[in-house]
Write a protein that binds this DNA or RNA. Structure first.
Ligand SMILES: [Zn+2]
Ligand SMILES: [Zn+2]
Ligand SMILES: [Zn+2]
Ligand SMILES: [Zn+2]
Lengths: 143, 143
DNA sequence: TCACAGTTGAGACTAAGTCTCAATACCTTG
DNA sequence: CAAGGTATTGAGACTTAGTCTCAACTGTGA
């Protein structure tokens, strides 16, 4: 998975530097969503000596390439989710942070209808679904 | 509109203080979305002497009562939109900031389908649509 | 191997948001 | 229309998120 990120960055014509390789590995081993602060903490824990700016810069690069998507958590924090470059949405587990992807099962019809009613020309949209994943659901009922 | 906010706050059992009345008026006269910083600037411009904390506290209160909704702008800023307490979504004009409301024309079917496929129990969702409002669209084509 | 443009980390800086605390102002009760 | 208890307030310190600059460094293509 780290490899895919790096290949895509290479395609995009940026340099494959040491810090970028290390960060790609850190992102690859994360489960679910993570914040810039999480990555920073990972890097510090491993004494990689990667600066804060470098992390924000890479996240921006990855987001530009749609290799990572920005998710706004219900508590207002900004998080990221590594994901396929195709358009889709995320289900976020509020208790363990697990992520599941949803392809557009009907959302396009919703936006088209909204555009028709409002007269807006819709350029982009963001749909985030929050809830509990199957694991957390059953964990709670077994307790 | 300021009156409605104040009445709802009264219902909620909080005190109707001077700063809250003034802020309600400021919010009422805003068009479209606004950030905490916008409100703060409004208050300073009028020399109301309202502290930063008071503004964040009121926004949180209003959000709890669903009198105002948090919107995450595409550029990552957090904004607020005054709105009806019923569930609905917003169309945000990226060029002038105008807001239009959309009631759930089909989104519930989308979330239900996503829940079925993923096994998640969906607790909440957030849908934001970004684009250009009719005014801005025609302004551009007439230029 | 070389040169140069892209990238880096440090750290200053700005902006966003939270917290504490003593002073104040609602509002209920008498 | 007091008076008193409590919710609320502003100031400002503090924390966290994110940006910017710049000199030093390092991929990369020639
Ligand atoms: Zn979509
Ligand atoms: Zn979970
Ligand atoms: Zn609304
Ligand atoms: Zn507009």
């Amino acid at each position: 998975m780290a490899r895919e990120l790096l290949e895509a960055l290479d395609q995009a014509g940026v340099r494959l530097t040491g810090p970028r390789r290390e960060l790609a590995a850190l992102i690859a081993r994360r489960q679910g969503h993570f914040t810039a602060a999480d990555l920073l903490a990972d890097a510090e824990r491993r004494r990689l000596g990667i600066g804060r700016a470098t992390i924000f810069r890479l996240l921006e690069l990855l987001a530009d390439q749609n290799l990572v998507e920005r998710v706004d958590l219900p508590d207002g924090r900004h998080a990221y989710v590594p994901c396929e470059p195709s358009h889709h949405h995320h289900l976020v587990c509020v208790s363990c942070g697990a992520i599941s992807e949803v392809d557009d099962c009907g959302i396009d019809a919703v936006t088209a209808e909204a555009a028709r009613r409002s007269g807006f020309e819709i350029q982009s949209h963001r749909l985030e679904l929050f809830g509990r994943c199957p694991n957390c659901k059953s964990a709670e009922s077994h307790q």
